[in-house]
Amino acid sequence: MKHFFYLHWQSASNAFTRILRQPFGSLLNLVMLSVALALPLSLYLCVNSLQDWVGRLSATPQITLFMEMSAEDADLAAVNSTLRKHPRIKGYRFVSRQQALKDMENRNGLSGLADGLESNPLPDAFIVTPATIEPHELEMLQKELSGLPMVETAQFDASWAKRLYGMVDLARKLTVFLATILGIALILITHNTIRMQILARRDEIEVAKLIGATDSFIRRPFLYHAFWQGVLAALIAWGLTCWLVAMANPAITEFAMLYNERVNLISLNAPEVLAVIGLAAFLAMFGARLATGHHLRQLEPR
C-alpha cells in the first residue's frame, strides 16, 4: 500500500516538474484551457448576480389580496394566520382600508379627499411576497389565495414577472450551453496535448513496455500531467473571473446608482471554486485517458 502511494506520488511530482520544465509550451496550453473555463464561468457569475439582484428587487412579484368590503376582523385574522403558515410565501404586510386611504391622499396630493367621501371606498388588503419567482408557481399561488374566504381578488403583474424570469432563464440556458461546448473543448485540448506528449516520448514508452511496464504504469504520468493542467487552468480561470469582478464592479455600481439600485457581481465562493477545480481536473484526465487508450494500443512493441 505504501508502495502504491509512493508510485503515485512519484508520477505526480514528475508530471509537475515536466510542466515546469517546458514553461512556454505549458503556458500556452494553460492559457488556452483557462480561457475555455473562464468564459462560461464569467457568464455564470453574471447570471448568478442577476438572479441575486432579481431576488432583491423591490419590484419582486407581489400578490395583492383585496378583501371583501364586508370582511370583519375575524376574517382578517383567519387570512392572516393562513398567510403566516404558508410555505410558499416569503413575507406579507397588511394595509388597512384607513391606511390605504391615507396613503392615497398623501401620494396624490388629494388632501381632504376623505372628507368629501361619504364612506371609505377602499378595501383592506394584504401585500404578499411569494417565495418563488417561477411564473407557473406564482399563478398557482394566486389561484389558491383568491380562493380564501372573504378574499375578493388576488392580483399580480404576471407579464412582468414572466418577462424577467424568462430573461434570467435564457441567460442560464446560455451558460449551460457554453459550459458544455467549452467542456468538450477542454477535453479535446488535453487530448491533443497528451497525444503530442505520447508521440514525443514514444521511444521511452516502447522501451518501458519491452522491459515489463504495465499499461497503467505508462498511463499514469500522462494522467497526472492532465490533472495538473486541469487544476492550474482552473486556478488561472478563477483568477481571471476575480479580475473581471474587480474591474467591472465599480462601473456596475455607479450605473446602478443612477436607478437607485444596489447591484454588483458576486465572486465565486469556496465550494464553487473547488467544484470548478475538480471538474476541470476530471475533464482533463478524461481527455488524457482517451488519448492514452488510443495511442498506447498503437505503440505495442515490435
Binding site: K209, L210, I211, G212, A213, T214, D215
Partner: peptide
C-alpha cells in the same frame, strides 16, 4: 496486461 508481469 499479464505478459507485462512475465517480462518483469
Amino acid at each position: 496486461s499479464q505478459l507485462s508481469f512475465v517480462r518483469q
